[in-house]
């Protein structure tokens, strides 16, 4: 399966002379099969089949080592929020954090445009483009799901 996530364009106020730039992805849900993701910046290509790691707008990659299925009783994989006096470690499905270095790609993307659009393309081990859903088919959970992304630059 391949999924394409095109994020809303942002207007970052970034000085061009930064030394390093990272894309931080936080709150990643990993209760899913493992997958890899490619990050594209200001990429106008609409066909996911044409987007691969060697595409000129590809900024980097990340992988998510997924938990896949629940092997416990009912409620085993329901995330619980630690309460007062609970010193146990957090739930194994605690959301993940990923950092992808995008220094060169960000400089390139901001040379020609003032806006930044991030595209995240993810593939599981099948790697086939997800077929269009038939009417009435049950909704399949997306592989890639996170609470937020942010671009961080370092002077």
């Amino acid at each position: 399966m391949i999924e394409m996530h095109k994020l809303k364009a942002i207007k970052p106020e970034i000085e061009q002379d930064f030394k390093r730039a990272d894309l931080e992805i936080y709150g990643i849900d990993h209760f899913c099969p493992s997958y890899s993701g490619l990050i594209f910046l200001n990429c106008d290509e609409k066909d996911p089949k044409k987007l691969r790691p060697d595409h000129p707008d590809c900024a980097g990659r990340f992988s998510v080592f997924g938990h896949e299925n629940c092997t416990g009783d009912e409620g085993h994989c329901h995330m619980t929020v630690p309460q007062r006096f609970d010193t146990r470690r957090s739930h194994p499905l605690t959301k993940a954090f990923k950092r992808v270095e995008i220094t060169g790609a960000l400089k390139k993307a901001l040379k020609t445009r003032k806006t930044l659009q991030i595209t995240v393309l993810v593939a599981d081990e099948e790697g086939a483009v997800k077929p269009k859903k038939k009417k009435g088919a049950s909704k399949r959970k997306a592989l890639f799901s996170c609470e937020g992304l942010q671009v961080v630059t370092f002077a």
């Binding site: 992988s63 896949e68 081990e125």
Partner: peptide, 28 residues
């Protein structure tokens, strides 16, 4: 901290590359 994050990233890449049960924290 940065080294640990980066190693975990490379580690995840290998799990995904091998695939099958190695691609699942449950069975790897």
């Amino acid at each position: 901290s940065s080294f640990s994050d980066r190693m975990q990233g490379l580690h995840d890449d290998v799990h995904v590359w091998v695939g099958g049960d190695m691609g699942s924290t449950t069975a790897a």
